[in-house]
Design a protein around this nucleic acid. Structure first.
Lengths: 246, 246
DNA sequence: GTCAACCTGTTGTCCGGACAAAGTGACCGC
DNA sequence: GCGGTCACTTTGTCCGGACAACAGGTTGAC
């Protein structure tokens, strides 16, 4: 009854089997080999055809359900959902998002210095106000146009962090390469209107709508390792979120 | 080494065991019995103490990891993360969010009618423009103050949906009771400034910052069952999102 | 004293099996 | 034809076990 995308698993690969399966199903959805509304083979059938156990296949499908790509119904089967038109918000920097969609990100580093933490940033990082932190202020452009002003605070000094690196790389990429593994982030999204300074930086009129996002990121030891306070031109940018239940 | 919150499981309950465990750990975090930074017992120890298998306990903890409440580290253990100050965005209506935090939600129903679908709504629902749909426009107040203007489109008629019901209940609650089970929603979040009409409704100045959210919701058969286009007063409302990796 | 090898504890992955719950459709009696 | 019952399929939950990968501490050699 169902459709079975061609999948191959490599048992000698260090990549977990469930992840290989999940990625290949996701790829089949992206390429259109699996269209919205299509019904997948049952978990048991997929497991048999791949020589895997049902829990492994189930774990793979579970990942895609969490990402909102497919839905399961007991007694019925597993079905492909309509693809979102645009990328979802993930734990990647704006830089990566833009680069992936081929929109030529560029960065002006306006500040990179060790400064006493402002009260707001200190509170988010769980530090006392005035504690020395690394502060970064960047203007992000896409295809030449200003897109966002991004302010970040880092509790620890990060040696590889230089103006030159930030001109071409996203902050999260640099942090990952420095061994800082961010695994959870809490974001608050709001809106405001541009004041004179913001308007000048973003080449908007005063009073233009801006999207604001504050983000506190944690590593796997539970420590806050980054706080960001960003403003985006609402006329050029919006955020995508997928929410799932159960 | 670790801390073990007091948990009891009821094997005769229809509620899945892993869910009982997850909820009780989450409750212990909320009440402060488990503080940020605390280390949980190992999965094996918890499983033994509850008379459950390790996969079941692991499934419970996995849910909390997905919700960004705790982090796991291989070879080390499982640790409680700092609590978010405010509720996260979930698949609940604004009404439920407000009611839960005790902020007296009220609703003015501005429109409830069967109308031809506007092109934007029709596209989101996967219908042809002009297809008859149920349209709802509501003004949501909190503690007397206007908070948001919410416009919703539903492809199917929902008999229990009346003005009286909407005055006291959230839309999602009504849909759930009508047997419509929403399990995935895609949201796009942006910002704009208030025009004269919006300003009058929301009791803001013209040009005030507004947060916009468009949401397409799907049921477990993969059909779009609701489209919403909402605007919030940015001065009174912001959205919370937790993002996790892996 | 220093450093490497080892040991232990923990989570990550994977297996095979079992039963329950829910949806679907066929069958049968009426 | 109609309605209810039953069987079947499929996902949901749970078990017990096994080994691998990783982090951290301990021990031992040099």
């Amino acid at each position: 009854m169902g459709i079975r995308p061609r999948i191959e698993v490599d048992r000698s690969s260090p990549i977990p089997l469930y992840f290989q399966v999940a990625e290949q199903i996701a790829e089949a959805i992206r390429t259109g080999e699996l269209a919205p509304g299509d019904q997948l083979d049952s978990e048991v059938q997929i497991a048999e055809s791949l020589g895997l156990s049902r829990p492994t296949v189930r774990q793979a499908i579970g990942h895609l359900v969490d990402r909102g790509m497919i839905v399961r119904r007991r007694g019925v089967g597993t079905q492909i959902l309509p693809m979102p038109v645009r990328r979802e918000m993930e734990l990647t920097s704006l830089h990566d998002d833009l680069a992936r969609s081929g929109r030529a990100p560029a960065t002006d580093v306006l500040l990179l210095a060790r400064v006493p933490a402002e009260p707001e940033a200190a509170a988010a990082l769980g530090l006392a106000a005035g504690t020395p932190v690394t502060k970064v202020v960047r203007l992000r452009r896409s295809q030449g146009e200003p897109l966002a002003v991004m302010r970040n605070w880092l509790p620890e000094p990060v040696p590889p962090l230089t103006e030159e690196v930030l001109e071409t790389r996203g902050l999260y990429e640099v942090l990952r390469k420095a061994g800082i593994r961010i695994c959870v982030a809490r974001q608050r999204i709001g809106a405001c209107t541009a004041d004179a300074e913001q308007a000048a930086l973003l080449e908007e009129r005063r009073g233009a709508a801006l999207l604001t996002m504050e983000r506190t990121a944690f590593d796997d030891s539970g420590r806050a390792v980054e706080f960001g306070s960003h403003i985006y031109r609402a006329s050029r940018y919006s955020l995508e979120v997928t929410v799932t239940e159960h």
